[in-house]
Nucleic acid binder design. Structure first.
Lengths: 125, 125
DNA sequence: GGAAGGAGTTACTTTTTGGTAACTATTGGA
DNA sequence: TCCAATAGTTACCAAAAAGTAACTCCTTCC
C-alpha cells in the first residue's frame, strides 16, 4: 500500500489551521466561526457595520432585498453573541444604532479575506 | 438635523472593503464569497482540504456527522465552482481524491481568519 | 455464492431559513 | 384628527438545506 493522503502540505502562513494536525471537530475554531457567520445576510451585515455605526433603517436599505424580519433576527443574534452592540435613543421617532463590539471588530480580517476571495471569483485570471 | 452616520471609520488595513465607499450590493465581493462558502459544512470541508488531498471516505469520517448525501452535494458544488478538483482512479474498489484548485487555494486566508476569529470566540478574554 | 470495500445515489422526512404582508407603538406636527 | 417617521413584530407560507435509511455498482477474495 503506497503512503497515502495528508502529505504535509507546505503551510502557506501561520499555524492557525490545525488541518495537518487532525480533522475538523464539530467545535473546532473554523466550525465555531462558521456558526456565527452563517446565513445569507450575516457577512453582508457585518461588512456594512465594518464601515462604522449604522442605523436599523440604513441597514434595511443598504442591504437591498433583506426583510425587516430577517434583519432584526440577525441583529438580535449577533448581539446575543456579543458581536454587535445596540444603542437605542428614545428620541421622537426612536433611533437605534448598531455597531461592532471589540469582539465584532475581530471579524474584519475574515470579511476582508472574503472580499479578496470574492474578487478572484469575479475575475478568474 | 445633525450630520449622521458613516463617519469615515479609520480603515484598519487595506482597502479591500468598499464599506466606506458604499453599501454591499448583492454582487459585491463579500456576497459572492458568501454564496460559495455558504452551508453548514462548506468551510469545514475546505478546512480539511487545506491540509492536502483527501478521499471521499476520509472526509466522510473526519467531518463527523456529515451524511454521504450532503458531502457529495457540496463536493459537486465546489467542483462546479472551480474550487476543488476531483480525481477518480478506477482501481478495484474505486478511489476518488479531492484537492483544492489554485482558485480553491485562495480560500486559505478566509479559513485561517475564521480560525483566528473562532479562537477569540472560544476564549473571550 | 456471498461478503467487503469505496463511492456514491434515491426517496422521503424534518429542520432551518427566508420571504410577504400587514400590523404595532410613540408622539410631534399639519 | 390623521399622517409621518423609526424600529420593529406577528402570522403565515415557501424554499432551501440537511438528516435518515436503504440501496446501487463493480470486482476481487474467501
Amino acid at each position: 500500500m503506497p503512503p497515502e493522503s495528508a502529505a504535509p502540505t507546505p503551510s502557506s502562513s501561520s499555524d492557525v489551521l490545525p488541518a495537518a494536525v487532525g480533522p475538523c471537530q464539530p467545535d473546532c475554531p473554523v466550525a465555531r466561526a462558521a456558526r456565527i457567520l452563517d446565513g445569507r445576510w450575516t457577512t453582508r451585515i457585518l461588512r456594512d457595520l465594518l464601515g462604522g455605526t449604522r442605523r436599523y433603517s440604513e441597514l434595511l436599505h443598504s442591504l437591498s432585498g433583506i426583510s425587516p424580519k430577517v434583519l432584526s433576527q440577525r441583529l438580535r443574534l449577533l448581539e446575543q453573541e456579543g458581536i454587535i452592540h445596540k444603542t437605542t435613543t428614545p428620541t421622537v421617532p426612536p433611533r437605534t444604532d448598531y455597531s461592532l463590539t471589540p469582539l465584532g471588530e475581530q471579524v474584519r480580517p475574515v470579511v476582508e479575506a472574503m472580499a479578496v476571495f470574492g474578487n478572484r471569483l469575479q475575475d478568474p485570471s
